[in-house]
């Protein structure tokens, strides 16, 4: 049986650490934290492996592959770091659990399908917004960008509007 997990951190402590991480990122790199860029680069890399001519001539992926391997970028190392940091934290606190997290009233298959559909929408939306909750929301708001707050307004409005219809997935 699994050992008792340690509690999540108080939001003030976790938020402060996240804020310090973001501040350090600005100080070291000159930009904020991100995430969706890695998945866009992975898509460009895969497209290039499957259909190099189409990818090179595509107006969105073209610039990614023109300057070499699209994955050779700071954000790829950052995501590797996120995986390491998340894994270290989860295992040290007894919060690592291999499985499918879902509400008690849906099947594992429904959960995986909703995860896939949600991922597609987010992948598309992050390209439209030129970033995600990390890159535009958190980092944008941290730099006081109007874009960061407009992004968060869209994110929170749509999240609350969708909650009623998706509650069965989680509760």
């Amino acid at each position: 049986m699994n050992a008792q997990p340690r509690p999540f951190w108080h939001p003030l402590a976790a938020g402060t650490l996240l804020g310090v991480a973001l501040l350090l990122t600005f100080a070291i790199t000159g930009h904020g934290l991100g995430a969706s860029g890695f998945f866009a680069r992975t898509a460009a890399w895969l497209a290039n492996a499957i259909a190099p001519e189409w990818t090179a001539s595509n107006s969105y992926f073209g610039p990614f592959v023109r300057s070499g391997n699209p994955l050779a970028s700071w954000i790829s190392w950052e995501i590797v770091g996120v995986l390491i940091g998340g894994f270290l934290g989860a295992t040290a606190a007894g919060r690592f659990r291999l499985g499918i997290e879902r509400g008690p009233s849906i099947s594992a298959g429904t959960r995986l399908l909703s995860a896939l559909v949600g991922g597609v929408l987010v992948g598309f939306g992050a390209r439209l917004a030129q970033g995600c909750t990390s890159g535009v929301g958190l980092s944008g708001a941290g730099s006081l960008a109007v874009a960061g707050f407009v992004f968060l307004a869209g994110f929170f409005a749509a999240g609350f509007a969708t909650a009623y219809f998706t509650r069965r997935l989680w509760q």
Binding site: G118, L121, A126, A157, A158
Partner: peptide, 8 residues
């Protein structure tokens, strides 16, 4: 984009 991410 933010709204699509909220739904997703």
């Amino acid at each position: 984009g933010g709204a699509l991410i909220g739904i997703g």
